[in-house]
């Protein structure tokens, strides 16, 4: 077996410039968690089913486990830490607490980052649209109802402002 192959990358993570040398086979979430200490993005299934690793790359939510760190070279990455610091979804995060939309919290960063894209797109705030949009994110605690409640309530609150 050959030696671990590495490559130098440069990217922006939560607004900060990052330079690193990474194993070419390392996926983006492992890089964010182990190299940068950004443990808000969770690792669940590591094959693109659960959505716990969702991160924003160049403005779009993607599976962090289905993208190599080397592919993020030159990209702008935003994790739940960056999204929280910017205050972009502070209202949604408060609503998650208010509506009991999380229990163990494992799926929550992925849910929030996916819901943030739903807000950006500006789909009509029907429960059906919300369920469809979040259908790629698993939650094993809540039964989803409270999550849909929180997203719907936040959308309505934003529209009434």
């Amino acid at each position: 077996m050959s030696l671990e192959e590495t490559l130098a990358i440069e990217l922006t993570v939560n607004g900060e410039r990052v330079e690193s040398t990474v194993p070419v086979r390392q996926h983006l979430v492992d890089f964010l968690r182990t190299e940068l200490g950004l443990t808000g993005s969770h690792i669940g299934c590591e094959h693109g089913i659960c959505g716990a690793c969702s991160v924003r790359v160049d403005g779009a939510v993607v599976r962090g486990c289905l993208m190599l760190a080397v592919q993020a070279d030159g990209a702008e990455v935003v994790t739940i830490e960056g999204l929280t610091d910017s205050g972009e979804i502070a209202d949604l995060q408060e609503m998650f607490v208010e509506r009991n939309a999380l229990q163990c919290g494992y799926c929550t960063p992925g849910m929030l980052i996916t819901a943030a894209e739903l807000f950006d797109i500006g789909l009509p705030a029907s429960r059906e649209n919300i369920r469809e949009f979040l259908s790629g994110n698993f939650c094993r605690c809540t039964g989803y109802h409270a999550i849909v409640d929180a997203v719907e309530a936040t959308l309505k609150q934003r529209l009434s402002r």
């Binding site: 077996m1 050959s2 086979r25 996926h27 590591e46 190599l68």
Partner: peptide
Amino acid sequence: MKAPRFHYVRP
């Protein structure tokens, strides 16, 4: 689970 080793090229 982690990917096995491979040679990576980006033409």
